[in-house]
C-alpha cells in the first residue's frame, strides 16, 4: 500500500504504567483497506496499543494520526474515524439491538440513525432480532451486534481486540466471515489475536509485538504460514528482526 494513502500513522509511541514500559517507541503506518494482525504474548502491549489509538488511554509520548487528525489536537474528529471491537460488547443489556445501534449512531450525529441501524442489522443477520433486548442474546449474537455497533459511524479504522475470545467454533466462523467483509469494504483494520490460523488467514500484514516493541512486521504474502509458528517463537526469543 502506498504511503501517500496512509490512514493511520503512529510515530515514537511509548506508554509507561507505574515505571513499567508497556510500549516502547513504536512506529507504524497503515494504508486504506490494509488489515494488520498483531501477535504477541500476554503483556506485550497489544491491547495497550489499541486502547491508545482508541483514545481510551493516553500515551506517555509519541504521536498518532488518523486520516490527518491528531489524537491530542483533534480528539473528537479523531474518534469519528474509529471503530473498536473487543471481547466486551460495549452494548446495553436493557436495550434492544435496534435501540443500542440508534443510540450509538445518534452519538456520532448520523443523519438517520434508524436507517443506518436497520442497514447494519441486516448486514450482521440480526434484523429479525432487532426488537429483542441484548441481555437475552448469545455470545455470538452479541459479537455480531458489536461489529454493527463499531461500524455505525462508518469508521475508516477498525480496532479488533481479541474478537474471537469466548466464541464457539460456529460463532467464530461466522465472525471471521463478517470480518473478511471489512476488507471488501476497504476498512483499515488492526486485529490483536492469539489465534494464529485466523490471524494469518485474514491479514495482509503481520506484526509481532514483544515487550512493547514491534519486533517483526511483514506482508502476509512474504510469510510461509507453515513456518510462522517457528518464526513467532524466534521473535519471542529475540532472534528475529523485520
Amino acid at each position: 500500500m502506498a504511503a501517500a494513502t496512509e490512514y493511520l500513522e503512529i510515530s515514537g509511541l511509548s506508554k509507561d504504567y507505574e515505571g513499567c514500559r508497556a510500549l516502547d517507541d513504536l512506529c507504524l503506518c497503515l494504508g486504506r483497506g490494509e488489515f494488520l494482525t498483531l501477535f504477541g504474548p500476554n503483556g506485550a502491549g497489544k491491547s495497550t496499543l489499541l486502547r491508545i489509538i482508541a483514545t481510551l488511554t493516553s500515551p506517555t509520548s509519541g504521536r498518532v494520526r488518523v486520516r490527518g487528525f491528531d489524537l491530542e489536537e483533534d480528539a473528537a474528529k479523531f474518534r469519528m474515524q474509529l471503530g473498536f471491537i473487543s471481547h466486551h460488547s460495549l452494548l446495553y443489556d436493557q436495550m434492544t439491538a435496534m435501540e443500542n445501534l440508534v443510540f450509538y449512531g445518534s452519538l456520532y450525529a448520523i443523519a438517520d440513525p434508524e436507517a443506518r441501524a436497520l442497514e447494519l442489522l441486516r448486514q450482521v443477520d440480526l434484523h429479525h432480532r432487532r426488537h429483542q433486548r441484548v441481555g437475552g442474546f448469545s455470545r455470538g449474537m452479541r459479537q455480531r451486534l458489536s461489529i454493527a455497533r463499531a461500524l455505525v459511524n462508518d469508521p475508516a479504522i477498525l480496532l479488533l481486540d481479541e474478537p474471537f475470545t469466548g466464541l464457539d467454533q460456529e460463532a467464530s466462523a461466522l465472525l471471521a466471515e463478517r470480518l473478511l467483509l471489512l476488507r471488501q469494504w476497504q476498512r483499515t483494520v488492526i486485529m490483536v489475536t492469539h489465534d494464529m490460523d485466523r490471524g494469518l488467514a485474514m491479514a495482509d500484514r503481520i506484526g509481532i509485538l514483544v515487550s512493547g516493541r514491534l519486533v517483526f512486521l511483514a506482508r502476509r504474502d512474504h510469510i510461509d504460514p507453515a513456518a510462522f509458528a517457528g518464526l513467532y517463537r524466534a521473535a519471542l526469543a529475540g532472534e528475529v528482526m523485520s
Binding site: T55, L82, F84, L91, D93, Y104
Partner: peptide, 15 residues
Amino acid sequence: KENRCLEGLLLSPLS
C-alpha cells in the same frame, strides 16, 4: 461498566 459500555461512550465524540 457493565459490558464496558463506558468505553463505548468514551470512543464516541461525546465529551
